[in-house]
Every structure is written in structure tokens, then in C-alpha cells.
């Protein structure tokens, strides 16, 4: 399914964070122009798409989640994240191959614009994923908790292949995983989240991050992620 680009609002400060700025006051004129150009370009060319599946029946036991007869996940952290939910959603979102091509092209011809485009695309996919979540829950009138992706905590990347198969992402949105379980096109997100009948916190947390003990952002008192929505 396509995501309406009009509904997506990017957080400018978050893009700056990806580029290494901690303060928008450090921004120089030319970089601001290049960011504006990049925003125009990407909004024009990228078409975010998503696909999802809702599991109303599943088994939880011993830090294991069994979604159906061949989709079994062993992960203590995912288990904890989903154990109280009434339904489980698997989501896959991508900006598509065109975005990767644009970034590649820009990196070749104009590396400063290339890294800016890359940063914008990272923010774009995050907000696209949020918008997809919003659409899903609004249609079924429920609440969700935060997104939990392969790579978080102890949720192994190997699960990507299962997600790809379960959601038929290759055929539906052109999303694949490669030999190293990395998603391609590169600006893509797969995630689990739970559905509830009561409102849940959507604040992201550092709790499950591998860099918790060793994070340059935390050392400086800031966050790597957009605190507004998970």
C-alpha cells in the first residue's frame, strides 16, 4: 500500500542530528539550502510503500512467540515488548529502489549533497513507518505500543527472512533481504508492535540499545532518535 506523502512531516532537527549537528543554530546557509533541495527531491521521487499482517491468535511462552506453525521467534526482549498485547502486527515499509539510486548518484557527483540526502531518507523512512502504523491502528480503532525491529535488543536479524516471506514483501513492495539479512532497498524498516484496547506509551527508550553503556549522544545529554514518536 502507498503512504500518502502529504501526511508525512519530517523533523528538520532530526535530520540535522543524523548529519552530526546537535544544535540547529550551527547550521550554515549553504547546508540549509542543500537540505531544502534534498527534501524537495526526495519528496518528489520517493514513494513509500508498506505491507502488514495482523495476528490475532498467537502463543506466548518461555520468551518465545509463536505466530503460526512456521513462524516462531525466540527473543526475550520482543517477548517482553509484546507479552501484554491482544494482537501482534508485523509491518514492512520501504522508500523503494529509486531512493537508493538517487543517493548513490548524488554521492558520486556531490558527496556533501549525498550525505544530506541519506540523512533525509533516514528520517523519511522513520516517519513513513510512523504514518503506516497510524493508518493501521486508525482503521481498526485500537492502540499500539512502540515499534520493535530486528536488531533491537536480542531480536536477531535472521528473523528478517521470515518477515519477508510472511508478508510477501518481494512481490508486494519490492523489499528483500540479502545474504547478510540486511534489507534492500536500504531505506526500509520491518517491525513488530502490539495492539491494545488502551492507550500505550509511544516514547522511545534507550533501554534495549546495544550502545547503552557507550553512547556519544547520551554522553552529551541528547538523544539519537526523535523523542516525539516511536
Amino acid at each position: 500500500m502507498r503512504i500518502k506523502k502529504d501526511n508525512i512531516e519530517l523533523n528538520f532537527n532530526q535530520i540535522l542530528k543524523y548529519l552530526g549537528y546537535n544544535n540547529s543554530s550551527d547550521l550554515d546557509h549553504q547546508t540549509k539550502n542543500e537540505i531544502d533541495d534534498g527534501l524537495k527531491l526526495l519528496f518528489n521521487k520517493a514513494q513509500p510503500k508498506y505491507v502488514f499482517k495482523i495476528f490475532n491468535e498467537f502463543e506466548l511462552s518461555n520468551e518465545n512467540i509463536k505466530l503460526n506453525s512456521h513462524f516462531n521467534i525466540d527473543s526475550k526482549d520482543l517477548f517482553n515488548h509484546l507479552k501484554a498485547s491482544e494482537s501482534i502486527v508485523i509491518l514492512a515499509v520501504t522508500l523503494g529502489i529509486k531512493t537508493d539510486q538517487l543517493i548513490k548518484k548524488e554521492m558520486l557527483m556531490n558527496p556533501s549533497k549525498g550525505i544530506i540526502l541519506d540523512a533525509i531518507a533516514s528520517e523519511f523512512i522513520e516517519k513513513s513507518a510512523n504514518e503506516a502504523c497510524k493508518k493501521i491502528i486508525s482503521e481498526i480503532q485500537r492502540f499500539r505500543n512502540t515499534r520493535f525491529s530486528p536488531g533491537y535488543g536480542d531480536l536477531s536479524l535472521i528473523i528478517q527472512e521470515k518477515i519477508i516471506n510472511e508478508l510477501d514483501t518481494e512481490r508486494k513492495i519490492g523489499l528483500y533481504s540479502n545474504n547478510s539479512f540486511l534489507l534492500t532497498p536500504s531505506k526500509s524498516i520491518t517491525a513488530f508492535f502490539g495492539l491494545f484496547d488502551t492507550k500505550q506509551s509511544l516514547r522511545k527508550t534507550c533501554k534495549n540499545c546495544q550502545f547503552l553503556e557507550n553512547c556519544r549522544y547520551r554522553d552529551e545529554g541528547v538523544f539519537c532518535y526523535d523523542q516525539s514518536m516511536g
Partner: peptide, 14 residues
């Protein structure tokens, strides 16, 4: 010294 940032560094490098 954080007087300039990555995009500017890259621009100069280009």
C-alpha cells in the same frame, strides 16, 4: 572544534 559540520567538511573536500 565543531565550528563546521560534516556537510561543510565534505563540501571542502569536494
Amino acid at each position: 572544534n565543531k565550528e563546521i559540520f560534516l556537510p561543510q567538511l565534505i563540501r571542502s573536500a569536494s
